[in-house]
Design a protein around this nucleic acid. Structure first.
Lengths: 134, 134
DNA sequence: CGGGATCCCTCTTGATACTG
DNA sequence: CAGTATCAAGAGGGATCCCG
């Protein structure tokens, strides 16, 4: 059914996942949902991000037309970032993923624990819970 | 409403993206959709992957309960990998992302080209097209 | 056939400092 | 305020060899 969007196209899928799969893109997109933000405002909202990473992420998103950057030539330079229509549509999809995670997080954690227990070769209880990846 | 799935939860979202955002997980999930596969079969289907990466990816997916590994004690050892229900449900979401990419890829490439042209500081035409990231 | 163990290298990220 | 430049570290990924 619906062969047009064949899930077999690994390259294409990796394309988009490579884009949003980096450490900050998706978070920034979420922070931008609803209202435009200024650079340092965004930085404050996104705990843990460095200027370097925020700058790079925003430039990246801007290049892909997901975020629009507006510079106001005010006395203190002011730059505003906002989601474009394309950015909003992506955010809507991302939302599904959050939904899915919400529904399956507990189960995943349980699977993880079970797996770790079953594969414990010796007295070395990992107990890392989620968040060890990447 | 449905405040439970607040898109503001960056940590949660990063959780799942870190899982599926690696280089091969999503491709393997797609390859597993529809029918179970054996290791080398999967390897042949997933062009470019090494045994090491396929092995690691499968173990990872298995740990999260997205893939079920079945060992048959036949004369030549045979191992079969299949998507679990959870794996299938994730694949359904991933599918949306492919859909989205399908719809927006051309636009993104156009944005990229425009951005690169506008920001060309000097005679150094990138023309990298898609696929330079990561 | 189905992996595990190693070596190594690149790319991403982070810390820090400096600029318009 | 809104970034850029430089440097160092670390994880992810590839190549290769070996084993049950």
């Amino acid at each position: 059914m619906t062969p047009s969007t064949s899930a077999d196209n690994g390259a294409l899928l990796r394309e988009v996942l490579a884009r949003i799969g980096d450490k900050w893109s998706v978070i920034v997109i979420c922070r931008l949902d609803g209202q435009p933000r200024r650079f340092n405002e965004l930085r404050r909202l996104t705990e843990g991000i460095t200027q370097r990473m925020l700058s790079a992420t925003l430039r990246h998103l801007e290049r892909d037309g997901l975020v629009r950057r507006t510079v106001y030539a005010t006395v203190p330079p002011q730059v505003e970032y906002a989601l474009t229509e394309r950015g909003h549509s992506l955010h809507a999809i991302l939302y599904r993923l959050v939904d899915w995670t919400d529904d399956h997080l507990a189960g995943i954690q349980a699977s993880r624990a079970a797996y770790d227990t079953a594969h414990a070769t010796d007295p070395a209880p990992p107990a890392v819970s989620m968040g060890d990846a990447r």
